[in-house]
Nucleic acid binder design. Sequence first.
DNA 1: ACCTGAACACCGTTCAAGT
DNA 2: ACCTGAACACCGTTCAAGT
Lengths: 223, 223
Amino acid sequence: MTDDVLWLRDEAPRPPRRNTPLTLERIITAAIAELDAAGAERLTMRKLAERLEVTSTALYWHVATKEDLLDLALDHVVGEVPVPPPGSEPRSGLRALLVGWRAAMLAHPWSPALLGRPLLGPNVLARTEFIQAMLVRSGLAGLELAAATRTLAGFVLGAAMADATWRRLDDPAAIAKVRAHILASAERYPTLSTSGFVEAGWSDDELFVFGLDRVLDRLLAGT
Amino acid sequence: MTDDVLWLRDEAPRPPRRNTPLTLERIITAAIAELDAAGAERLTMRKLAERLEVTSTALYWHVATKEDLLDLALDHVVGEVPVPPPGSEPRSGLRALLVGWRAAMLAHPWSPALLGRPLLGPNVLARTEFIQAMLVRSGLAGLELAAATRTLAGFVLGAAMADATWRRLDDPAAIAKVRAHILASAERYPTLSTSGFVEAGWSDDELFVFGLDRVLDRLLAGT
DNA sequence: ACCTGAACACCGTTCAAGT
DNA sequence: ACCTGAACACCGTTCAAGT
């Protein structure tokens, strides 16, 4: 029994104090990294904790629930969208913001799938504020203003979601299968099978910008 | 020991054979009912099995995975959208289909949250076929056709998602909280706080139709 | 204040076994 | 062919306890 002699006990000289303390900011960053790496719904509180070198239960000191964490991650991604200067010419300002918004979400392809949750974070609100400010400066008000705001928001988020879905389904074999299925059912899909729908002649970026410009044309034209 | 006398044994006369056999159709219907009742992500293979009076593992004879089941449920919901007759006047046909599409998804408020998954079911494809057919009959082709298809699809799905989010957050206290927060931060949200964004002066149905009509205006106007 | 360890009440899914 | 029962490998989250 040498254990009762202090000098003979071979223990770590200190309980190795945490090098980097856990913060909400670090947790969010790690969560985004984990989502980027592992993909959509493979984020786990335990795996996230492992990445941060803490116990999974330690996370709950900083965050109430996993859902809250996802909301924070989503708002953080939206925060990557640069907001044009408030003095921008309305149309080009709107265009820049909306193109950037979609790009930021597609840079984190898991993020559009989270859009089913309420979008009320500070970064989202700040960008919604910019959108409405530009619309107001274009002369919109009342019903027209309200509808234009929702139309633009819905369009961007819907497009991001659809495009992210296709990109996550990057398996070329799967895409070929879809194409083959549509072409094989030409009598059921006479238009789709002959219109170039399955040909992918244009990038989703091109198609988005083309559509966005048309939508802006009409919304900014006034009544 | 009366148990070795057949006539004295009181067992059920038959192993009560399944009254209604399990089918994929019944599973999908029950899943939608469960989702409608229990809400978004509270669907569980075990609870679904309980509703069908089978073991949870019995479901796996008919369906490979829970994700597959959700894909089937989503396509089933899209199937509730009436497709106008193929001879419809293009604009009114498109309008009817898209209004119906959004309405069907909002009737099952959990469904827009599933849109992050590939939309390739037969019901979705049939409706996409109709959309493109109407656009082609309006004279669209090439890039214009491809972009219009995606613009309309993105707009409808994005709007459905956003509206479903708000409706699921039906807690009036929560909505009041959002409103109070924006109004309290008037210097950060000068436009939002004064534009009526938080007033809800119009229904989401009105706003959607208003926006849809504008989008159709421009897309059908041609180059 | 911040983190660990053990524990609870669940999950989706597999698989051998029954009928 | 279709379903059950037991089991596996996980989950998110709570809570007492440590520092």
